[in-house]
Each structure stands twice: as structure tokens, then as C-alpha cells.
Write a protein that binds this DNA or RNA. Structure first.
Lengths: 270, 270
DNA sequence: CAAATAGTGTCTCTAAGACAATATCAC
DNA sequence: GTGATATTGTCTTAGAGACACTATTTG
């Protein structure tokens, strides 16, 4: 009879075939674009971070930031490390999206990816400053269902428009996944990962989750509303939104200034 | 300048360190226990499948069924293969729970686990028949929060009671996880995986998801109600439950027979 | 008939959507 | 003053919970 100690000393993990494991991070930010009308508040756009691949495979294609899992770190730590390396900013949210292990998804061989969903504040990115020539860029996100049932994902940066088309598939065993009909030039299966991450973000935002994470510590109720409306691509009457959000915030004694209209009370998250 | 083809032919995946990847499956079933009162309907119990480990490490401990990911299969296929091998039954649901990659979670080395949530019908298990001496057994599940805030997980099979204690941890970056205070004799970090899976099941059942998957094709509304009540550990007035469930079912023209009380109409899921 | 589940109707309360009305700032 | 956002109030409607009541079966 072998003891556990003996067993482990004879056990060689390299006797078995093993995949490489990566993380890919769908990092979202909401960017505000100043209006030319001094009375109007700024417009919001949902954006996602993409990096231009400098090496094969998919050289020169845009891809999600990510990298290989190293020994003695969790997948969460790996995702955090990769996103921080890429942006020099620490995200405020990092949540799992799913595991992508389809054989053939990576031409280099057996590589499975853990996808993460992350939120980064515009405030923190502005502090770091942007490099226009950098290989990491924030793309505007547009994701919606067409009349024919397909989903259309458009990622835009100035003149660059990456347009992917996906189909929702109700698989056996209760899981819903996207199937790529046209990857839109994105590397690997990243169109699928982004579609899944945006869907997850919308589900969260619908329940008032993660919406505060896009904002600074203090915010007006209208700012929260615009974050939710930007993510969900909907609009709601301010009076009704205020009633619903009220449970999630604490009012402060401070007000906005110089906005071209009545000052708004600042709130903090509860 | 190297072409993608050249790059890939020079790429050797074995140059990098890689973890082993496993799947673990939390397979749930609802068992009905006949009452001695002919008028009363049967009582339901939520149960989970555990296997007694025959090899090191954690030899003779109870563990979730699972196994190593093989080349050319997805993690979902791996989970399906493992649960089918163990039960000779095809599950009706197989959904991801999370990835568990904490260094040191497996004494054999760098092994990360993809946990899945699965539902198996009592009907299908009865057809296969049970082996009392088998190393795979269904344990009754009891999972609840104590007054002190800790979570108590008790898995029972006749005289065997595995009692684990966990703490809910609100980690940075928005994720909630369980931390094992006492693993209750379960192998690896399986107490944590089970706690996470039960929480997920309850979230699903609360929204009327997966509750039909525990039942045969035709069922009475009271049977659906009892499944939900068993999972959520709550009770609800039948009149109100009927109103809510009505959107999810289609009535048939068939009725139950010989139940010691008024026959009930049978329904199918919509 | 007794005990159990099946099934319907209705009252109340709450939450959400629609909308009206007033308040206050920069220019 | 104008045009924008800020803020409050109220009407209506939909849904959930509580509860009363009737129906139908088996032993």
C-alpha cells in the first residue's frame, strides 16, 4: 500500500499532455465627448481596449489584451497583470466571462483562454495620458441585433471599423453562445469573446451592477443614468430613474458648478 | 520578414510552462421520498453526486466527479464525458461555474480546474439502476448561512455527514467568492466549488431557470413548485406560484391519477 | 366524511412607466 | 429671457403576496 507521500513523489505531471492557458481581457471604459453647446452635457460612448498584434499569428490584427498564465498565479492575477501592463492603470472591476477551449481556435496549437470582463475609469486613463502611436487603443463599441436575428459588432477608431457578425446559438445542455459568422478582422475568436463580454456587461448594468465603476467617487444622478443608457442603448425618464437608483446611492452636500444649467447634487455609491 | 507560416513551423508550444487542466462537475438531482401517508405527495431532497477517490491524493475522500482535459476536446465536452462515464446518464444541463486556479489547490502540482454545474433527472438515474457498493453516490445537500455570517454546507448519505464551513469574501475587483474555513473532509477545494455551484443553482431557480430540467417532460404545477421550493429552501402560496409559472408552461389534456386527492392537470414546458 | 391537493377569485401594496410642473444655473 | 438639466409629485397600470373559497379524489 502506497502512502500519499510516496505517490506524490512518483507522480510526474509532465507524463500527461497539457494545454497552454491564456487570459484575454475585455476592458471597457466610458468616454465622454464634449459638446459644442455650452448648455449641453457631454455625450458618452462605450469603448473597449484593443491591441495591435506585433507578432504572428494574426500579426497586425487587432486583438484583446492578454497573455499566458504563469506558474504560481491565479487566472485572475494573470488577467490583472496583463491589463495593467497594457494600460498602466489598475482596473476597478475584473470578472470572469467564460472559458474558450474550442480546438483550433489558436493556430499555434492547444491553447485555451480564460476571458475576463474589466472596467476602467476614464479618470484613471486620463491621468496616465494617451500615446497616439501606441499599439493599444480604445475602440468605440456598437453591438446590436439585426432584423434577421444576427448580431452585429462594430468597433471603431477614427477611420478603422472592425465589423463582425455573429449568430446566437442555443446549444444543448442549456448554454447560449455566439458563433462567429464573420470575425471582422479581429484576431483568434476575439469577436466571440467581445460579444459575450458586452452581453454580460449589459446584464450587469440592467441590475445597476458595475455602472458606478465607470464613474469617479462622486457623481450626479444624471451621470449614472447616462452610463446605464450608454451601455444598454436605451433611454428612461429621469424621474423614474431617480426613484430606482435611490436605493444604491448616498447623497452628499456638494453640488456641481458651472454647467450652464441648474447645479446637480453629488452622490456617492452606497 | 517572417511569414505566418514560417513563424508557426518554428513555434514550439512545449517551450513554455503549462498547467494541467481538469473539469469538476457538480451534478444535481432532486430525489423524491415516498411518504407513509397515502394522501401526501412525496417529499423532495436536493442531492449532488460525489465519488470516493480510489487513488492518491485525497485517497478515500469524497470528491466531485471530473478528470483531465484531453487534446481536441472543449472543456464542456470533457465535463460531459466525465459525468457520463460516472453515471451512465446524459445530463440535461451543463453550465460553467468558474475556474479554480489557486496555486497549491492540488498537491500534485500546477492543476487548474474548470467547474461545471449539471442537472440530472431522477427518471434517467432510475432507469440505469443503482449500485449500493459503487464509489459514486448521491448525497443530500444542505447549504445555508449561519447567524454568524458563515455558510454551512452539509452533504449527507445515510450515516456519512460531510460538514464544511465557508466564508463569503468580497474580493477586490467586484468578485464574490467563498473561502474554505473547514473543508469537511472533501477532496481538494471541492467544498468551495460545491458552495459556488449551489449558489448558482439557487440564482437560476429563482428566475425559473433550470427548474424544469429536474422534471420529466410532463409535470403538475405543484411538482414544479416543490422543485423550486426545495432548491431555494422557501415556501410560497400555491395560488401565487401558479400565476407566476403560467408564462413558462403549456397545459396538456392529461391528468394525474390515483394520488389520494384531486387529480392535477399535467403541463409541459413552453 | 376526512385529509390532502387542485384550482379560482379578489383585496392590498408596491414598483414601474408616463407625464406634468417647478427650480436654477450660464450666457 | 432662453435653453438646458435638476428635482418633485401624481396618475395609471402590472405584478406580487395574502387569503378566502370551492372542487375532487382515495380510503
Amino acid at each position: 500500500m502506497q502512502s500519499e507521500k510516496e505517490y506524490l513523489s512518483n507522480y510526474n505531471i509532465k507524463d500527461y499532455e497539457r494545454p497552454s492557458v491564456t487570459t484575454d481581457i475585455a476592458a471597457f471604459m466610458i468616454r465622454s465627448e464634449e459638446s459644442d453647446n455650452y448648455k449641453k452635457d457631454s455625450e458618452n460612448k462605450l469603448s473597449i481596449l484593443l491591441v495591435k498584434r506585433g507578432v504572428h499569428p494574426f500579426k497586425d490584427c487587432w486583438a484583446l489584451p492578454g497573455g499566458f498564465l504563469k506558474p504560481n498565479e491565479t487566472v485572475e492575477e494573470c488577467a490583472l497583470r496583463e491589463i495593467t501592463e497594457e494600460t498602466n492603470v489598475t482596473p476597478v472591476v475584473l470578472l470572469p466571462v467564460g472559458i474558450f477551449s474550442e480546438p483550433g481556435r489558436d493556430p499555434r496549437g492547444w491553447i485555451i483562454s480564460n476571458a475576463f470582463f474589466s472596467v476602467i475609469t476614464e479618470e484613471s486613463v486620463k491621468q496616465v495620458g494617451g500615446d497616439d502611436a501606441a499599439d493599444a487603443q480604445w475602440f468605440d463599441v456598437n453591438f446590436q441585433q439585426e432584423k434577421n436575428g444576427d448580431f452585429h459588432l462594430v468597433l471603431s477608431l477614427k477611420d478603422v471599423h472592425l465589423e463582425a457578425t455573429l449568430e446566437k446559438e442555443k446549444t444543448k445542455y442549456g448554454k447560449n453562445t455566439f458563433v462567429i459568422k464573420d470575425g471582422g478582422g479581429l484576431a483568434f475568436d476575439h469577436a466571440k469573446i467581445i460579444a459575450t463580454a458586452v452581453s454580460l456587461l449589459r446584464k450587469y448594468a440592467d441590475d445597476f451592477n458595475t455602472i458606478f465603476d465607470f464613474l469617479p467617487e462622486s457623481f450626479t444622478l444624471n451621470e449614472v443614468q447616462k452610463v446605464q443608457e450608454t451601455i444598454l442603448n436605451t433611454s428612461i425618464l429621469p424621474a423614474n430613474f431617480r426613484r430606482k437608483i435611490n436605493d444604491y446611492v448616498i447623497e452628499t452636500d456638494e453640488y456641481t458648478q458651472g454647467a450652464g444649467h441648474r447645479p446637480a447634487r453629488l452622490y456617492k455609491r452606497k
